[in-house]
Every structure is written in structure tokens, then in C-alpha cells.
């Protein structure tokens, strides 16, 4: 029981981090960023390259992965999204293709065998019968710190309020002197950073391989659909529902792990199409 509680909390914190980067883009930029998984992929491999191949300190590896994710997000906005803006299906298809291309690039550079990431912090803590790797604990604590920071950033800073404003009323934001382009850039940068750091944690939680971006992308879509797009609190709550559901189901039968997540999506789509906390603006 305690084991399920702890593992559930650890996994859910990570899911919340991953889903948050995804929901920000949908809410501010109105883009369903299907290539979001690419940030996780690049983040995981960047950490592997910097920390395990170059031997840099692990914390530097995490930060460099975040920086790379940020740069990738900015480039994607500047070179792709901005140019086909307004045509949502074009953006979505283009971003998905980009993710597949990046996956191929990763295969070319690192090969397609899966890699084991060394723990960010080695060691295991035993609580009752549960073994908690320090690595997962650190990942969850960092995820929570980032999410709390993001919450206050969005609520209390001029830039954060401007992000909310753009997501709620583009014209209202423009006549308040907000440059939507700049706000979009910042949002894409933050989203890329969250995705890449989420990727480092996710890869160390599971394993690092070129197709690793698909599962967390589905989780992110699930959390966002069930939670209601744009809701920071909704994302947090639903990340915990999905995380705990997975832990409970897989303690019973690991094969069914993802099935219940899918069922939950379908159930919510049928009963509450706008999600449990549904509206599309960040709040």
C-alpha cells in the first residue's frame, strides 16, 4: 500500500511536468504540438551524451538538456509554426513529421539499441517494503519545484499574465501592448525546456531508446484532454489520477498499464468533452 502511494506520487509528479509543457503550448499558441515528444527524446539523449559520454557532472547534463530543449522549441516556433500559423492541421502534421525526423537522426547518431541511464543520484531508500531510488525522488522534487515556480510565474509576473492574456483574448492582449510573437517565443522556450527535462527523468525512470517519446506524448495528451486544456491545477490533479492508475494497474497486471489510461480518455471525451477542469485558457 505504502509502496503504491510512494510510486504513484513519484510517477505522477513526472507526468505532471511532462504534461505541463504540452498544455502551455496548446493554451497560449493554440497548437496541438504533436512533436512535443521530440523534446523528451532530445532531452534524454542530450543528458546521455553530456553526462555519460562526455562525463560532465550530472546536474550539468540535466541543465544542458533543458537548454537544448529550449533552443529546439524556439527554432520550431520561428522556422515552422510561425510560418504556417493559422493552419492548425498543417502545424500539427509538420510537427509530427519533425518528431519522426528527429527520431531518425537519433538512430543515426546513437544507434537504435536502448541505453541504460546511470541514476542522477545513486542509491536507494527503503521505506517499509518499498525501494525508492534517490534518482526518482530527486526527479519528482525537481518536477514539483519547476511546477510551483511556473504556477507563480504565470500568476504573478507581467510576462506570465501576458501569457494568460494571449491565451484568453488575442485582440485584448494586442491592444494592451503585448507582442504575441514574443509571448509565443517564451512559451515555446519554456515548453521545450520542460519537455527535455521531463525526457531526462522519464528515460532514467524507464530506458533510453529512439521510440521513447511516444508513450509520454500519449500520457501528455491524456492528461491534457482529461484535465481540461490549459488548467495548471487540472493538469496536476489529472497527472496524479493517471499516474496512480498506472501504478495500481501494473501492480496487478503490467501488461494492462496503458489500457486504463486510454479508457479514461474515451470516458471523459464522451461524458465531458471539455475535460474535468475544461476551458482552453491557462489559469
Amino acid at each position: 500500500m505504502l509502496q503504491i502511494l510512494i510510486q504513484g506520487l513519484l510517477l505522477s509528479g513526472l507526468y505532471a511536468l511532462i504534461a505541463m509543457g504540452f498544455t502551455l503550448i496548446f493554451s497560449v499558441g493554440r497548437v496541438l504540438n504533436l512533436a512535443y515528444g521530440a523534446y523528451l527524446l532530445i532531452g534524454g539523449y542530450a543528458y546521455f551524451y553530456f553526462s555519460q559520454q562526455l562525463g560532465l557532472p550530472k546536474i550539468a547534463g540535466v541543465m544542458l538538456a533543458g537548454v537544448l530543449g529550449c533552443v529546439l522549441g524556439l527554432l520550431k516556433y520561428q522556422l515552422l509554426v510561425k510560418r504556417v500559423q493559422g493552419v492548425h492541421s498543417a502545424v500539427e502534421i509538420a510537427t509530427l513529421i519533425l518528431a519522426v525526423v528527429l527520431q531518425s537522426a537519433v538512430v543515426l547518431i546513437f544507434g537504435d539499441s536502448s541505453k541504460i541511464l546511470l541514476p542522477i543520484v545513486p542509491g536507494v531508500e527503503r521505506v517499509a517494503s518499498a525501494a525508492i531510488p534517490y534518482s526518482n525522488l530527486v526527479a519528482t522534487i525537481i518536477s514539483w519545484a519547476i511546477l510551483i515556480g511556473l504556477y507563480f510565474f504565470v500568476r504573478l509576473t507581467h510576462t506570465g499574465r501576458a501569457m494568460q492574456a494571449v491565451s484568453m483574448d488575442a485582440k485584448g492582449a494586442a491592444i494592451s501592448g503585448i507582442d504575441a510573437n514574443r509571448i509565443n517565443m517564451i512559451t515555446w522556450g519554456i515548453s521545450g525546456t520542460l519537455g527535455a527535462i521531463g525526457g531526462v527523468f522519464f528515460a532514467s525512470y524507464t530506458q533510453l531508446y529512439p521510440g521513447m517519446w511516444v508513450a509520454p506524448l500519449i500520457i501528455a495528451v491524456a492528461v491534457v484532454i482529461v484535465g481540461g486544456i490549459g488548467s495548471i491545477i487540472g493538469t496536476l490533479v489529472v497527472a496524479h489520477i493517471v499516474g496512480f492508475m498506472e501504478i495500481i494497474v501494473s501492480s496487478w497486471n503490467p501488461e494492462l498499464r496503458g489500457v486504463f489510461t486510454m479508457l479514461l480518455i474515451i470516458l471523459v471525451l464522451v461524458l465531458r468533452p471539455r475535460g474535468l477542469f475544461g476551458r482552453e485558457e491557462i489559469h
Binding site: 492574456a165 484568453m168 485584448g172 476551458r279
Partner: peptide, 11 residues
């Protein structure tokens, strides 16, 4: 101050 206000409804 535009005709439809264009306020931010959930703020």
C-alpha cells in the same frame, strides 16, 4: 477600449 471589450474572462 473596444466595442466587445476583449477582456480576459478568467482573470
Amino acid at each position: 477600449a473596444p466595442e466587445r471589450f476583449n477582456l480576459f474572462p478568467y482573470m
